[in-house]
């Protein structure tokens, strides 16, 4: 125990009162005058327009061809579905883009897993890095959850995509994939300076940002890469890594960064 100092009684009260007066003057009085209390709200999303843009138009991934992008309601939330292709390897991205400054990640993986009703195994964490495109920026480290999934019947998501397919190529692809059923899946929440499958990590990043009146906007990303029935996901690990890095880099550039014209 720390030694207790005997002080004149009034002295302790006066110092305590002094501190409270300081708080009153600098923190409380402005609230009383404006009727607006900072603790009753959170800072707004600065890149809300960019997030909406991505939600509507999908991501423009360098080196990838987007075959289709659309919004689809899954378990009550509107997911951005984007089918991309590179060298005959196709992948399906499911992204939930933050819409409102009060939205928070709510373990969306549960919704996807429940919707797909898939069995999963071979869970692993992948540690990834995005190198900055401009000089002077630091690299962004993020973590993803990587696992194998398969459904016993047809794949629910692919069935929906197949039902509304718009071109022969897509119809053919979805029809095959819908029955193929085994996928290497990557999941993470992406935010400006990081990413993780755990919502609590986003929470800490967001609180830190709030200290400087900023926010950490987020996007929940699922990447589905079709593999051979009950095949080894290790074979597509490098492919998944590079795709995840492209997505994170593109999200940082398109959804999380203010346009130059909007900067002050």
């Amino acid at each position: 125990m720390v030694a207790q100092a005997k002080l004149p009684p009034q002295w302790a009260k006066i110092t305590a009162l002094g501190l409270m007066l300081l708080l009153l003057i600098f923190a409380a009085i402005p609230g009383y005058f404006t009727g607006k209390w900072t603790w009753a709200d959170q800072p707004q999303l600065q890149t809300l327009a960019q997030l909406q843009q991505v939600r509507k138009q999908g991501l423009d991934l360098a080196g990838w061809t987007t075959l289709e992008h659309k919004l689809m309601k899954i378990r009550g939330q509107e997911w951005l579905i984007q089918t991309v292709e590179q060298n005959n390897q196709t992948a399906i991205l499911l992204m939930l883009v933050q819409k409102y400054y009060k939205d928070r990640p709510q373990i969306e993986w549960m919704d996807i897993n429940g919707f797909q009703q898939w069995k999963t195994d071979s869970h692993r964490r992948l540690r990834l890095t995005v190198e900055p495109s401009e000089n002077g920026l630091s690299s962004t480290k993020f973590t993803t959850q990587f696992f194998r999934s398969w459904t016993q019947a047809v794949n629910p998501l692919l069935s929906l995509l197949w039902k509304d397919c718009t071109s022969d190529q897509l119809c053919d692809f979805y029809q095959k994939q819908r029955l193929k059923q085994t996928y290497a899946v990557t999941q993470w929440y992406a935010w400006p300076d990081g990413g993780s499958p755990a919502a609590s990590h986003w929470f800490m990043a967001d609180r830190l940002a709030q200290l400087s009146q900023q926010r950490a906007p987020w996007v929940a990303v699922n990447v589905l890469i079709p593999i051979e029935p009950l095949g080894n996901i290790g074979e597509v690990e490098d492919f998944s890594r590079s795709l995840s890095q492209s997505i994170q880099a593109e999200l940082i550039a398109e959804a999380f960064t203010l346009n130059d014209s909007e900067k002050n």
């Binding site: 708080l23 923190a27 900072t38 603790w39 959170q42 609180r207 200290l211």
Partner: peptide, 12 residues
């Protein structure tokens, strides 16, 4: 006092 001064809901 610092928590109160931060103006952030949890800290206040």
């Amino acid at each position: 006092g610092l928590c109160y001064g931060s103006g952030l809901s949890d800290l206040v």
